[in-house]
Design a protein around this nucleic acid. Structure first.
Lengths: 330, 330
DNA sequence: TGATTTTCTGCAATCGTTTGCTTTATTTAC
DNA sequence: GTAAATAAAGCAAACGATTGCAGAAAATCA
């Protein structure tokens, strides 16, 4: 691979001149410039990004760390992030933790090695210490989708309102016995959804019905099992609120198995919308999270933070509203 | 951020000794080692990966370039790639092209800057020149899922057999009028599917029926429109073969709209399987591509290539068989 | 004991850039 | 016509690691 030196030799100038010509960072005679550009083309020179980063202390690279890429929210958010990053002339590297603490730590430890200027992360929790250390070392950190650490900036959907609004909506549709499929309340989004649900249920003077199981909550099976259990506990249920899209699919299947008609007998709503909902045989009503917007704005926030020399950076907290998209299940 | 120098100073030794201690690359007195490790811990030192890469000419990083991350094949393959890369102690960066030539070029030009040791790519085509240049410059290149350039190594599913076997399967189920939804035949996988379909259809002495439209073939709408057109052209169709999962969903919807019962009136199969097919209200029969295996083996191949100093590297071509998973649509 | 070998450590060059400082040539200003 | 400003280019020191070479100390051998 050709280096600056090679170009300099061919163009018969010093490397510094080549550098300045290519970066437009000082006067270079037009003729010299021409010679340099010709040499660049002839040698098909590409600057070494490592050397550049090393010298400048800036890598123009950010990382986005997510649990999975197949989950709708991330599948939506990630392309928005990479696109926005490109627009801002940043490179973007995507890391997948599988929602495992150990993997997340491994990844964070790698990222700590000066590869990136900033990190957008949906943490699986338990890494607050490391995240804060990284942040203290000068790498910008932004929590997205999930919030774990109040001392670091975050940008998340309004899970509380999602649940609250969904209950209100179903109430207006005539439902009076709404079952909620929920996960571990120690996890922030689940707690928020739970609180939003409870608030609405109390306001409307309804009986709260919710179910939580062991096992991976982000799964088809979880929706299947929880729906079954909900009906075992309360046979009169006329609406199911699934926390996630994939839970919703499981619920749909279970309702079919139990011979319940959707939406006539039971209505169904997902609190985390996916586009796919639209494509199903019976398309699913859902609260659609503005994942793309969140991704885009996350990049903007992060880059602003990176490029701020100011030492007393403020902790920012952004909350995005979702929109209810009504489809065939309600 | 602490550097080797800081550690050296604190441990009261030379940087070279620190380097050797940390990398276990030469004799270092146990006591000295202890002092060094203490210093490392105290300063929470993390080696600068850029400097390391620059000096060693190796980055222990590979890139995977894909059109989308939401498509099932990639959503399956990518985690397999990153996991396998980690296992081999390589870092992995994921790039998304949106199937746009321009973006792909932009990305490749970035990757060319010495950031990675190798590239696994599902190209949108038209970049053969650049890919070959990159390969010639010493960055290993491996085509996955799609093959564009016969002169570069590749690892792909057997699209031909997929289609061939699907036809045979449907024939055994009693279907005699099978419509194929296909895309641009200039694109390798579509051509292969077409050829496989035609081969089987001729062998079985059936009438070939296929449809191709303008517009994005990887979409719900494409499946919708093509299915409609298929039936306009041949009203007696008793089976639809969708090239892709998402086309299959569109077909399913269209069949419902047309009042056709699946699988009684019309059978439906997807030639590119997704796990999601299992979760649908009427779960979809499909040829399941071993995306995880392909991803894993791609990494192995690539790394073997990277770590081979040998100049006359051979071009490798691997083809993976799919398996037919029968579900409710047939 | 003296000669080897092995262990331990430091010096300094290197990877491919960028950039502060200098120097020289050219232009502008009054 | 001289002083000041501007344009153009080179030298050499960084950035943070690795590594060949060399020398000193310790251990082994005869």
């Amino acid at each position: 691979m050709a280096t600056l030196k090679d170009v300099a030799k061919l163009a018969n100038v010093d490397v510094s001149t080549v550098s300045r010509a290519l970066n437009n960072t000082s006067y270079v005679h037009p003729e010299t410039k021409k010679r340099i550009f010709n040499a660049v083309k002839e040698l098909s020179y590409h600057p070494n990004i490592l050397a550049k980063g090393l010298r400048q202390g800036k890598k123009h690279t950010i990382a986005i760390v997510v649990p999975r890429i197949s989950y709708a929210v991330y599948a939506d958010m990630i392309p928005a992030v990479t696109q926005q990053a490109e627009k801002e002339n940043y490179q973007c590297i995507i890391c997948i933790t599988d929602d495992e603490l150990e993997k997340e730590q491994e990844i964070l430890s790698r990222l700590r090695s000066g590869l990136v200027d900033g990190i957008i992360i949906t943490s699986c929790g338990g890494n607050n210490r490391i995240l804060r250390d990284i942040s203290a070392e000068g790498i910008s950190v932004l929590q997205a989708i999930r919030k774990q650490d109040e001392n670091l900036s975050s940008i998340i959907p309004d899970y509380y309102s999602n649940a609250y609004e969904a209950v209100r909506f179903l109430y207006a549709k005539g439902c009076r016995n709404m079952g909620l499929i929920i996960g571990n309340l120690a996890i922030h989004p689940y707690l928020e959804r739970y609180n939003g649900y409870m608030k609405a249920v109390r306001e409307l003077d309804l009986e709260p019905m919710f179910v939580k199981e062991d096992g991976e909550p982000s799964s088809f099976e979880y929706g299947l099992v929880c729906t079954k259990k909900l009906f075992e506990q309360h046979s009169n249920i006329d609406a199911v609120l699934a926390s996630l899209d994939i839970q919703g699919l499981g619920a749909q299947r279970q309702l079919k198995l139990m011979g319940k008609r959707v939406p006539q007998d039971v209505k169904l709503i997902s609190l985390t919308g996916i586009q796919l909902g639209e494509y199903l045989e019976t398309s699913m009503t859902s609260m659609e999270i503005p994942a793309r917007e969140i991704g885009q704005e996350a990049v903007n926030l992060l880059i602003r933070d990176i490029e701020t020399k100011d030492s007393h950076k403020s902790v920012k907290k952004l909350i995005y509203q979702s929109t209810l998209v009504e489809r065939e299940t309600t």
